Amino acid sequence: MAVPRHPPSPPPTPAARAFEEIYQSEFDVVTAYFARRTSDPQTAADLTADTFLNAITSFETFDRTRGTARGWVLGIARRVFAQHCEAASRGRDVVTRLHGRRALDHDEIADLVTRIDAERKGRELVAAMSALNAAEREAIELVDLVGMAPKDAAKVLGMSSGALRIRLFRARGKVRGLVSKGEER
């Protein structure tokens, strides 16, 4: 009896190849973004997956002439994290939060623990920046921690490049003051 053969898969479309390139180049950046915000590997993995799920479903709206892929993906990550924080603050029940999530295997947890440990300094800086307002913190994080160009970070934050530069200057001054006070103790 002959085994039925499946027809070969069609070659990936240019859009699929373009998304794959973005996924591969920005995966570590998005994972690090969430690793600075949580010490739970499962949460970091879930938020990263949610970010790329949202990205792939809205990929047709991505316009390279309006900004970089990194800025676009981090904008999505910001929204995913805001939604996560809202859900947590509403006290969603554990079963609802875990519904539809796959448990990570041991190797994946070890990899994420390593990534989270690597971002420990970043989390410490984010914690030290808690005296800043949210807009100042996001500006510093996108430019100084993620390494985005200020004009791209301005697009992610929905402001002009000039306004972002002013916000960065003020926020960096505040952080320097906070760090020097912490070192005096």
Rank of each mutant, 00 (worst) to 15 (best):
T13M: 09
G173Y: 02
A127V: 10
E26G: 03
T114G: 07
P11K: 13
A163N: 13
A77Q: 00
W72G: 02
P8V: 07
T38R: 07
D111C: 12
D105A: 11
D117E: 10
L157H: 02
G91C: 07
S58L: 06
L74K: 00
A45N: 03
A2K: 15
R17N: 08
T65Q: 15
A82H: 13
R120V: 08
D50I: 03
E108F: 07
T57Y: 13
L145E: 14
A15M: 08
E20D: 13
R78L: 12
A128C: 08
D144P: 14
A82E: 08
F59T: 04
V73A: 06
R185G: 11
S9N: 08
S180T: 09
R115E: 04
S89A: 13
D28N: 10
E21N: 05
T57R: 15
V3S: 13
I56T: 09
G67T: 01
T43E: 14
N133F: 06
T65G: 15
R120M: 09
V156L: 03
A82G: 10
M1V: 11
K174V: 08
H106C: 07
R167W: 06
D46H: 03
T96M: 12
T57K: 11
G100V: 10
N133D: 15
A18Y: 04
I140D: 01
R123Q: 05
E138Q: 14
R92M: 09
L104S: 04
L145D: 11
D105P: 01
D107Q: 12
E20H: 14
R70A: 07
T43H: 05
P12C: 06
G162T: 10
L98A: 12
K151Q: 07
R37L: 00
